[in-house]
Amino acid sequence: MKNLFHALGIGILLWISGCSVISAADSTIPRTYLLDIPLPTVSSPPRHGKTLLVAVPQSAPGFDTPALVYIRTPYVLEYYTQSQWVDTPARMLLPLLVSRLEASGLFGAVLSASTSPVVGEWRLDTEIVRFQQEFLTEPSQIRLVLRVQLLDMAARQVIATGLLEIKENTPSEDAEGGVLAANQVIARALNEVVAFIEKQMQP
């Protein structure tokens, strides 16, 4: 009987040790996050027959990375080591832009430069100038600066350019809080891009 209890004790200790090893290993795996914005569906016929090509968004130096970027002091970029985006913010932004512009009903067709070889009558260029969590205030904030440019491809000229800046307080002072605020910032940015383009289409 003593041998049986001894064996059971050893087995339990090994099981607990194994769980500890697994937990320790799991804690070193970075969490991967998505930009996941609920988008409306198209509810009305297109107001214009034009075709818009959405170019692949660009990123300023330091932001073309899946890492979550934050700053604690001005001019110094830092990156979370245990949290990251599933892809670069610029690449994640492209399908969101296409879907939001399709739902706006502004165009006869909205094309993505990543999948369509067709050149649209108009083209939208965007660049992420800043997309970072800023620990310069309390609570911290997510700050997005997005440069937008609308071009008439037939006339080969720039229709309009703009610089959108959006900030959102984070619900917690960590990467997860930054991700939640980042999704809200992107949702607001998509609406502002639509409003920017709609203004250019007014007679």
Results as ranks from 00 to 15, higher is better:
K2Q: 05
N3A: 11
A7V: 10
G9D: 02
G11K: 03
L14T: 08
G18E: 14
C19S: 13
C19W: 10
S20L: 15
A24I: 14
I29E: 13
Y33F: 15
L35S: 09
I37H: 09
V42E: 05
V42N: 09
V42L: 14
P45A: 11
P46K: 02
P46L: 07
L52K: 08
L52Q: 08
A55H: 04
D64V: 04
D64G: 05
P66Y: 14
P66W: 13
L68T: 06
L68Q: 02
L68K: 02
V69F: 14
Y75T: 04
V76Y: 11
L77W: 01
E78G: 00
Q84R: 13
V86K: 02
T88W: 06
T88G: 04
T88S: 08
M92Y: 01
L94P: 00
P95N: 05
V98W: 05
S99E: 09
S99V: 00
S99I: 04
R100C: 01
E102Y: 01
E102F: 01
S104D: 08
S104A: 07
G105I: 08
F107K: 06
G108N: 05
V110Q: 11
L111A: 06
S112E: 11
S114C: 06
T115W: 07
V119S: 10
W122D: 02
R123E: 12
L124S: 03
T126N: 13
V129F: 02
R130V: 12
Q133E: 07
F135T: 00
L136Y: 04
E138N: 04
Q141S: 07
I142Y: 08
V145F: 08
V145W: 00
L146G: 04
Q149K: 11
L150T: 09
L150S: 13
D152Q: 07
D152V: 13
D152Y: 02
R156N: 14
Q157W: 07
V158C: 05
T161K: 09
G162D: 03
L163D: 09
E165P: 00
T170M: 09
P171R: 00
P171D: 02
S172P: 10
S172D: 14
E173S: 12
G178E: 13
V179S: 04
N183T: 01
V185M: 05
I186W: 06
I186Q: 01
A187M: 13
N191D: 14
E192D: 06
V194H: 01
A195Q: 10
Q200S: 15
M201P: 03
Q202P: 03
